[in-house]
């Protein structure tokens, strides 16, 4: 996987890491996510991604539950080394 390719957050499988590249949406939405730590360049770890319904990501030592609609508006580039142990 190339580091430059960006996908929507809900495309990141559980256990995978990615780097936040872009947030799309209204000002309030972007502001809320930025405050929680979703700023461009931040690493996120997908904790649970059931495909349907909300998912859980870890960002800056915090687990955050996100609705699918919200996850679709966060774009990340998957980390090349995938699941780091």
């Amino acid at each position: 996987m190339g580091g430059s390719k960006t996908i929507a957050l809900n495309g990141l499988p559980a256990g995978q890491r990615g780097i936040v590249r872009e947030l799309q949406g209204g000002h309030r939405f972007i502001s809320r996510l930025a405050v929680l730590g979703f700023t461009p360049g931040t690493e996120v770890l997908m904790v649970r991604n059931p495909g349907r319904g909300p998912l859980i990501v870890q960002v800056r030592d915090t687990r955050i539950a996100l609705g699918l609609g919200e996850a679709r508006r966060i774009f990340v580039s998957p980390s090349a080394d995938g699941n780091r142990e």
Binding site: R32, P54, R63, A65, G67, G69, E70
Partner: peptide
């Protein structure tokens, strides 16, 4: 209308 779900665990 859809409302955003963003919640800390």
């Amino acid at each position: 209308v859809h409302t955003a779900f963003i919640m800390e665990l």
